[in-house]
């Protein structure tokens, strides 16, 4: 397992500094929550790590430098992400969604043939995310929470070692949140997980460590208790809740 090491990361959009010299270390197997008010730079940080936003500084995952590589190369190095709005391939079935996620390394001949059987990684992911009974259903027909689980399942079959989840429980019911949290625990057994989240209850229940971002900078870092006790955090953020 590898950890994520971010050094002096800066992202600038047309003169606006969205991420301003962030240093971040996520240990292998950690479940790290990134919290902070709107505009703190959480999503932009994830965009920079996954190659979507141009950045300066350094992002290392294991021994590999990620900055400066195209999105699909970073994905192949074992870094996967989800988006605030669940993006699954709506017209394809659950099974097809997962099968595509499993296949970035496939050769030309395999691609040009039909899928004859369900790959082992796909069937185990179907079990883990609890969608085995719905595998032939178009992804567009799934409930909101199920789509989020499907996205996480796609990351599992993609065999990523670092999961970056952008508000995975937004819009979920209480039961669905708990199920998602349990899923994150299972997943982090052999993977590193970073979660952007606004839901404080969810964070208290499932975060291992927390980083608070504010105005593009790291405001505080530590366990949930440490962060909650930090006066600076209380002032800008947690004091509200």
């Amino acid at each position: 397992m590898s950890g994520l090491v971010v050094r002096d990361l800066r992202v600038v959009f047309d003169g606006f500094v969205a991420v301003d010299g962030v240093d971040l270390e996520v240990a292998p197997g950690d479940i790290r929550f990134l919290i902070g008010p709107n505009g703190a730079g959480k999503t932009t940080l994830v965009d920079a790590v996954t190659g979507l936003a141009r950045a300066t500084g350094s992002v290392r995952f294991g021994d590999d430098e990620l900055l400066g590589r195209p999105v699909h190369r970073i994905a192949r190095m074992g870094v996967g992400r989800t988006f605030q709005t669940a993006t699954v391939f709506e017209e394809l079935t659950v099974l097809q969604n997962l099968d595509i996620a499993a296949g970035a390394g496939r050769g030309v001949l395999t691609m040009l043939r039909r899928r004859r059987s369900v790959p082992a990684a796909v069937s185990s992911a179907l079990e883990t995310i609890g969608l085995a009974d719905l595998r032939d259903r178009p992804a567009g027909a799934l409930a909101h929470g199920q789509k989020q689980w499907l996205e996480i399942g796609m990351l599992l079959v993609q065999d990523v070692k670092l999961l970056l989840l952008d508000e995975p429980v937004a819009g979920m019911s209480h039961d669905e949140r708990d199920a998602t949290g349990e899923l994150l625990r299972v997943v982090s057994a052999d993977r590193t997980v970073v979660v952007i989240e606004h839901d404080m209850d969810f964070m208290r229940s499932f975060a291992n460590t927390v980083t608070v971002l504010h105005a593009g900078k790291v405001l505080s870092e530590g366990t949930v208790a440490q962060v909650q006790a930090d006066p600076a955090v209380q002032q800008v953020y947690l004091g509200v809740g």
Binding site: P70, V71, H72, I100, A101, A104
Partner: peptide
């Protein structure tokens, strides 16, 4: 989304 799955 496809790009984030490692395809070009």
């Amino acid at each position: 989304r496809v790009r984030f799955l490692g395809y070009d």
